[in-house]
Design a protein around this nucleic acid. Structure first.
Lengths: 205, 205, 205, 205
DNA sequence: GATGAATGAGCCTTCATTCAT
DNA sequence: TATGAATGAAGGCTCATTCAT
């Protein structure tokens, strides 16, 4: 027994999603959202504090979810023994990312929002957080496999960062271009494989 | 002999740059720009038509310049014979990109603007145009070298697009993160090498 | 045995005081008061009816208390015989006002509120009520002492009003300027003496 | 030949006056003012910068005018020789204030606004500035006449301040109560005389 | 009695743009 | 060409208040 009219909040959320997607964060109007949702503007403030609060409410769960998913996948990889890691490098990746694509597509609107309509550095910061997870894992991997690439300066923090950034930016290309999910899955896997090839030259001891 | 006071327009441009960089396109204020430049707001309209016109005036020359530079570099590559291309694949890249990094750093503000403060899909469209040049060149290369990768479906248009997008997104990471030029040059070269490795598996006949 | 948590209401009152003092009546926010007092906004309505009710609850007791004090002091004076009044004119004043200053300082915040942060004509009306007590007493005094000053038009209602208003406005200067109590006591006594001198010329028969 | 429609600005001013008088500063609405003046809200911003700017524009000239008038009158008095001052103490006052009352009534609305509808401490600060002029003059007078009242502590800065504050607060009673000008002139003169009497006891050497 | 939620009204302010001069 | 002034539109936000629970 809900004291709140069923689907009420969802209506605000749906309308907000639509407006933010259509106009981007800065140009989206809370008034428009409220009107479309048959709610007073103030209600948005009651429920979500302010414009940014509403946006975060929309986007943050999906962002956090993806971060967790990738974090979990990477940390599982990290816990493997050096030889297992080395061995399963390519194969594992595919598995680890198996869930990623479906997750993105289950929350496609949210990621679209995050990628194309977020205020300020929101998207950049999100990307950054993924890149940090990724580079930390990579460094741990290099360490465990006894690679001397970093000591020898063939691989630096900056290089890891740039390559990883390029990779994740590439991932979100599928969102930017509304790629169908199956297509996306293929491309992302291919991108991973492509990166796997790229790394081979570096992480050999 | 200019009837217009020397450095007049430049002041508007400088102030516009500053404002757009600080606040992003949507939140930048023409009035603020005009005030800082000691000019009436209307003057901006007289000279640049409107807000977007001003922004384009700021950013477009650098964008076009870079597009031309990369286009030229790629088309030179395209005109090589198949064997030369294949042979110089990696080596050439470095050369072709030799001018790219300095160019970006000569117009750093403009690219920063383009990458982090442009309205709507401006940056996406710019990236897209680079990606098109790049993929067109790549396809021509595959054709000339007689690679069957595309016929066999190992390489598709979508794949080319994603990989290329990831690459150029990676390039502009150096702008987003205000990387010093020398550092940037290294990373970009490394990124190119990294991609070179990645491609090897695919374009062999 | 209170069913209401001890000190509960006092917290609202304290927070209201603070907010009204800081922002003045019009700009004070009930929500801010409620939040600071760890109470829902509605609670304020339950207990004090509305914003004005809360303000009155804060200020009215002290205002009434001062009015009563001054009223009592003046009416005691009024009940003296004509000769006694005339004789004690100056001396009495000091006594009558003896309690006034301490009373004001016991409720300093409330008077500060009344004087500097009250809505509309609240303060003016309060001053007015004191002035009325005062002028009524003065007229009675003139009557009893057989002074012909009013008949002869040397003293009019308007004049009484202005002089009395000036006096009480002067009194509350000590509140406006956060004067320490001892200082205030001196000044007010001096002001009374000053006024005593002023009157001498008028009320002689 | 005015490029601005005749009486245009005056209409805004008139409507602003009306609104501020009716509701006080905080509760006055720029929208209402603009509507009544048949002008867009933005126009107010173009012309007066913001709400406070509009208010100041209304009130400041009159406030400054009165301050100048009183300042001039007091400084003329100050330049008299000690004996002249002492002699003309009472008489002069009347003259000096001769212009004051008409001036207040020529700008009655503005003073009404200042006294009953100003934001924050505006009125208090205005009063304060008059009091400062007044006390400075009084101290100079005591000095020149060789009075020892201050050295002996019979008159202190605080006392001067309180008495002067009471006096000017009394003056503006005529505004608060919409007293007719002739009546006001009488009362103010009487008040001055009354104060003259009060001072006698103090400034005798 | 207490309160979470909702809301209509209203706020001041800013903006990009136009246009007569 | 340059601009001061005007403006319609819209913005995010806050408020006092109500009311069902």
């Amino acid at each position: 027994m809900a004291s709140r009219i069923e689907g009420y909040d969802e209506k605000i959320i749906a309308c907000a999603k639509e407006e933010f997607l259509k106009k981007g964060y800065a140009d989206a109007s809370l008034r428009t959202i409220a009107q479309n949702a048959d709610v007073s503007t103030s209600t948005i403030y009651t429920r979500y504090l302010d414009k940014e609060g509403l946006f975060r409410f929309l986007v943050e769960p999906a962002a956090k979810g993806l971060k967790d998913l990738i974090g979990r996948s990477l940390s599982e990889f990290t816990t493997l023994s050096a030889s297992e890691q080395s061995e399963k490098m390519t194969e594992y990746s595919d598995k680890g990312f198996e869930e990623t694509v479906p997750y993105i597509y289950e929350h496609f609107d949210e990621f679209k929002l995050l990628v194309t309509g977020a205020p300020g550095n929101y998207y950049q910061e999100f990307l950054e957080s993924l890149v940090e997870l990724d580079t930390a894992c990579m460094k741990s991997f290099l360490l465990r496999t006894g690679s001397k690439a970093m000591q020898e300066g063939r691989i630096t923090d900056g290089f890891l960062h740039v390559v990883s950034s390029a990779f994740y930016s590439g991932i979100f290309e599928v969102v930017i271009h509304d790629m169908p999910m199956e297509e996306a899955r293929n491309y992302i896997n291919e991108l991973r494989a492509f990166y796997g090839n790229g790394w081979k030259e570096y992480y050999q001891i």
